[in-house]
Simulated scan of single mutants.
Amino acid sequence: MTEPTITPLEPMPGDWQRALAVVAHPDDLEYGCSAAIAAWTDEGREVAYLLATRGEAGIDTLAPAECAVLREREQRAGAAVVGVERVEFLDHKDGVVEYGIALRRDIAAAIRRHRPELVITLNHRDTWGGVAWNTPDHVAVGRATLDAAADAGNRWIFPELAERGLEPWNGVRWVAVAGSGTPTHAVDATPGLERAVRSLLEHRTYIETLTDEDPETYARTFLTESAEATGERFGGRPAVAFELFGR
C-alpha cells in the first residue's frame, strides 16, 4: 500500500503593502495567525484589525458590559505585541452575529476605508476540518468577509457608502482564510512565533476561564504544536497556513 501524498503549501504572495484582518472575536487572530502578522509588520507592511464583536459573551462569570471592556483592552494589547496599531470594533452582538446585508455593509465600509490588497479572515465553514463544529459567529463573519471583498469594489452595492465619502475600493487581490481545513499557502512562523505566544497571553483573563493549565504553557503549546504540524507541509519550517482565494 502506498503512503498518502502530502501536498506542499505554497508561500503566501509577498507583493502587497496593506492588509485588513476581519474576525468575529477578540483572540480569534491570536489563536489563528498572529505569528504571520508579526512577520509581516516586521517587513514594514501595514496590518489593521476589524472585529465584529467585543467578545462580551465569552466569559460566564462576567456580565457582558464588563466583559466587553476587558476583552477590548486585551485585544488592543495583543495586537500591539505583533505590531498592529489600528484595531476597530463593529459592535455586532457576540454569539448571535448574523450573516446578511448589515454585516456585509459594515465590512465593505472598512475595506473601502483601509484599502487593503490582502484581506484576512477565519474559517467560514461549518466545521474545523470535519472534526469539530464551528461557531455561528465565525461562519457568518468569514462568509461576509469573502463577500464584502467584492462588495467594496462595486459602486452600485451599498451606494450609501460613497455618499459617506467611502469610494469603491476594488484593490483587494486576495482573501486569506486562517484555520481552514483545506489550506493552500503558508507563512514561515519562525520570526513571529515568540511574539504570537505573548500576543495570545495578553488574553490571560479569557484563557484562565478555559483551562487550569498555566496560561503561558497553554499558549506556547497550542501555537507551537499548530505551527509544527503545518510545517510538515512547508519544508519542515513552523508555519501558519491559509486558504488563499484570489480575486
Rank of each mutant, 00 (worst) to 15 (best):
Ala149Leu: 04
Ala38Ser: 12
Val175Lys: 14
Gly83Phe: 01
Leu200Trp: 13
Tyr99Trp: 05
Thr121Arg: 05
Asp212Ile: 02
His124Asp: 14
Arg143Gly: 07
Gly179Tyr: 10
Gly142Thr: 12
Asp106Ser: 12
Asp28Tyr: 02
Arg71Pro: 09
Ala178Gly: 13
Gly55Trp: 01
Glu228Ala: 06
Thr2Ala: 13
Arg247Ser: 07
Glu160Ala: 06
Ile59Met: 13
Asp42Arg: 10
Arg104Ser: 12
Gly78Trp: 03
Ala77Phe: 06
Pro116Leu: 02
Lys93Cys: 01
Arg237Lys: 12
Ala152Met: 00
Ile111Cys: 03
Val97Cys: 09
Leu146Val: 08
Ala150Asp: 11
Glu225Leu: 12
Asp91Gln: 13
Val141His: 04
Ala178Ser: 13
Ile101Gln: 15
Glu56Trp: 07
Ala19Asn: 14
Leu166Glu: 08
Ala227Gly: 12
Tyr49Met: 12
Asp126His: 10
Asn123Ile: 01
Met12Arg: 05
Gly14Ser: 00
Thr121Gln: 05
Leu50Ile: 06
Leu166Ile: 00
Val172Thr: 08
Leu50Asp: 13
Trp128Ala: 09
Ala140Tyr: 02
Ala108Pro: 02
Leu223Asn: 07
Trp16His: 03
Leu62Gln: 15
His25Met: 01
Ala239Val: 07
Tyr99Pro: 03
Leu166Cys: 04
Arg105Ile: 02
Thr61Tyr: 13
Gly130Trp: 05
Ala186Glu: 03
Arg204Met: 06
Glu10Pro: 02
Thr53Glu: 05
Ala109Ile: 00
Leu20Gly: 10
Leu244Arg: 08
Trp169Met: 06
Met12Phe: 02
Ile6Leu: 15
Ala149Phe: 00
Ser226Asp: 15
Glu216Thr: 04
Leu201Asn: 10
Leu161Tyr: 00
Glu216Lys: 09
Gly231Ile: 06
Val87Glu: 11
Leu103Gln: 03
Ala79Arg: 04
Tyr99Gln: 08
Gly129Tyr: 05
Ala219His: 09
Ala19Met: 13
Arg155Thr: 05
Thr211Trp: 04
Glu88Asn: 07
Ala102Asp: 12
Gly235Lys: 00
Arg237Tyr: 00
Asp60Glu: 14
Gly58Asp: 03
Arg237Pro: 03
Arg104Phe: 08
